[in-house]
Design a protein around this nucleic acid. Structure first.
Length: 670
DNA sequence: AGCACGCCGACT
DNA sequence: GTCGGCGTGCTC
């Protein structure tokens, strides 16, 4: 007879705690899925064992007994420890964390197992010889994996420097050492080449692929294959970090800087953090790889938290493309009011004459519009936060989405006095139209998230582009990621200013990354490629240094700014969103929390909490939203989240007419 | 979240 | 006298 503490699979905040049951099964283990009677009606509910003890901590007058255990689903102690850690770190419920580890689907009815990649042949290529640089990078990685020491590496390697080969060799070492590896990629549908290479090298039977396009049954089967130890390497998007492997020797995050590694659903976890937590238990190795590391990651590699390894040479010795910036202010002065500069037009014409292909980037304007001067390029920014102000139509004002600072819309540019100051963003959609008009004979295709939603259409469009049945690919960031097209001679970035003016402290970082990645798409064949960046602020450091392909210089400039403004990595940002059907309730909840947090903070730290403000898209599906931001300076994060945890706990006792969602270091602010 | 208990109003 | 309305409070 054992006593077990379980977490009930139940959506309520109120039951988010451990319940003690009796269990006659002496073999019961932490992580086991069980069925227990719960509540007054003793309805049978699913639950997960978090603790097993011989004697209960106190008397339970009406102790109940667990009824049965699920033979298939059993998490390890390490996974349960990670769940407990996640609850505290992301302020989610136990069950939310548990759900990350268990497969969503149930056992497939037909006992037949399906491996979606069973028939994939893989890219059959002999193992290439490693370059001296790759050898040097692999040496410490292999050593760490072999010795089973928990170490963290940043592999900073320029595009085309052979990072994937390094990953594969590291994974090979991991398998040789009797451990398993997880290979994470930002977006599975754009990573078929990587999967093919892994399958070609290791064989389909040793690899599991996890992603959202799998059916529930397929996902369950893959999960079981992994759990039963049939699989050596798991490839997948961020959720694959939860793969039920027994001995994790290695976790790789490819394109480490990508936003998709931060979950925007509950629990709002950060993949690197979860990976590190798991690897601590497994004494495993973390590899973060990127050609444009996140500023916070590079900072860690400067301060001994990550060991930095560099790949500086392009694998096949192809030259970096020639990058030119076009000053859109002078285009306007010269009377060109279209979104295509004369230089870009010329280059496109030339490319088509040579039967080459063109990629145009048009960044989605997203949810906000910034205000800038078309004559001098200046964009309105918050005097306190340094981020772009957003145009609010209703009040005709410019508003800061971090602190709420707002000012009336100027009628003339405060810098140069021009009357050509207006809100920007709209109009980028017209690029496709403009291009069609300028090049009616060219076959253009658009690739963005709307198109992507239709299953399989990414691959279809990309295949057509590869075959050459499309001349111009017009796309968003999607197209920038790791695609390898030989025949692309020219990449045009329609407006670098759009990403630059997204109201987020990371906008320079993202601009730099986008331009660099986009540039990497040009000239992958024998001929040198060309890149044209159009901007109203060509002197901006992010635009200029991206054109020069100078990451380190950019990092130095950016980290100074972060330090000065107190943004990550010098702080953590916490966003709270309060939503309700009634506007007054959402507002009231936000203000109530504001007061409570203020009271909990020492007076000198109250400036770190910004006043709540209505979300720009105030009403989504009849729900009103208010948001508020808390900046946690160095080392204060735990103390601050503990304050929020206490308030959340206290609010739970009352009946609430609102919901609060807390996002630690969100990727976008609303 | 559910589910039961509970204490008031319209019905057989 | 009883059926059922949903307000309240607890779930090992």
């Amino acid at each position: 007879m054992k006593y077990i503490d379980v977490v009930i699979d139940n959506k309520s905040e109120h039951t988010d705690m451990l319940y003690t049951y009796g269990c006659s099964e002496d073999e019961i283990q932490v992580g086991q899925k069980v069925c227990v009677p719960f509540g007054k009606g003793n309805r049978i509910r699913e639950a997960y064992v978090f603790r097993v003890v011989d004697e209960p901590e106190r008397e339970y007058p009406n102790l109940k007994f667990a009824e049965s255990l699920d033979p298939d689903i059993c998490l390890t102690e390490e996974m349960i420890r990670t769940c407990i850690w996640m609850k505290r770190r992301y302020l989610c419920k136990y069950i939310d964390a548990v759900k990350c580890f268990v497969p969503a689907g149930s056992k497939s009815k037909r006992g037949k197992k399906r491996n979606p990649y069973k028939d994939a042949e893989g890219e059959q290529k002999p193992e290439p010889e490693l370059t001296a640089e790759q050898e040097a990078v692999l040496r410490p990685i292999r050593q760490a994996i072999q010795k089973g020491s928990h170490r963290r590496f940043l592999v900073y390697g320029v595009t085309g420097s052979g990072k994937t080969e390094v990953y594969m060799r590291a994974a090979q070492q991991c398998v040789l050492s009797g451990k398993q590896a997880i290979m994470l990629v930002p977006e599975i549908s754009l990573t078929t080449q990587v999967i093919e290479r892994f399958i070609g090298r290791f064989g389909a039977e040793k690899i599991a692929v996890l992603h959202s396009r799998l059916s529930l049954g397929e996902r369950h089967d893959e999960w079981m294959r992994i759990k039963n130890g049939e699989v050596k390497i798991v490839i997948g998007a961020r959720s694959a970090v939860f793969a039920p492997l027994k001995k994790i020797g290695l976790i790789i995050l490819d394109e480490e800087h990508e936003a998709t590694y931060k979950s925007d659903m509950t629990p709002k976890y950060d993949t690197v953090e979860v990976a590190l937590k798991r690897l601590q238990s497994h004494k495993g190795v973390l590899i973060c790889g990127s050609a444009t590391p996140a500023v916070s990651t590079y900072y860690r590699s400067e301060h001994g938290i990550f060991e930095r390894l560099e790949l500086t040479k392009r694998y096949n010795q192809t030259e970096l493309p020639e990058v030119a910036i076009v000053d859109m202010r002078s285009e306007l002065k010269a009377g060109n009011k279209t979104m295509i500069s004369r230089a870009l037009y010329r280059q496109m014409t030339e490319a088509f004459e040579k039967k080459k292909q063109v990629i145009l980037f048009l960044n989605r304007r997203g949810y906000s519009t910034f205000i800038s001067c078309r004559e001098c390029g200046m964009a309105l920014r918050c005097p306190d936060c340094g981020i772009s102000l957003t145009y609010h139509k209703e009040e005709n004002r410019a508003v800061c989405h971090y602190c709420g600072h707002n000012e009336p819309l100027p009628s003339v540019c405060p810098q140069c006095g021009s009357a050509y100051i207006r809100h920007f963003g709209a109009g980028t959609e017209k690029v496709e139209e403009a291009v069609m008009e300028m090049f009616p004979q060219a076959r253009a295709e658009r690739l963005d998230l709307d198109v992507t939603k239709r299953k399989g259409s990414i691959d279809r469009i990309l295949n057509r582009f590869k075959k050459g049945t499309i001349d111009i690919l017009i796309g968003t960031q999607l197209v920038a990621k790791g695609l390898d097209f030989r025949n692309v001679a020219l990449v045009g970035i329609i407006s670098a200013d759009v990403t630059l003016n997204i109201p987020d402290f990371r906008s320079p970082e993202r601009t730099f990354q986008l331009i660099t990645q986009a540039a990497g798409r040009a000239g992958r064949g024998e001929e040198k490629g060309r890149v044209i960046i159009q901007s109203y602020t060509p002197e901006n450091y992010a635009v200029r240094l991206a054109a020069e392909q100078d990451y380190k210089e950019f990092y130095e400039a950016e980290i100074k700014l972060r330090s000065y403004m107190g943004y990550p990595p010098y702080s953590d940002l916490i966003q709270m969103v309060f939503s309700s059907k009634e506007e007054a309730q959402a507002k009231g909840a936000a203000e109530g929390w504001f007061e409570k947090i203020q009271q909990a903070l020492p007076e000198a730290q109250r400036e770190y909490l910004f006043r709540p403000q209505a979300a720009p898209m105030k009403k989504i599906k009849e729900i009103y939203r208010y948001s508020m931001m808390l900046k946690c300076p160095h080392g204060m994060r735990q103390a601050y989240t503990a304050v929020l945890e206490r308030i959340k706990e206290a609010e739970k006792a009352r009946k609430k007419n609102y919901t609060v969602t807390i996002d630690i270091n969100p990727y976008s602010f609303i």
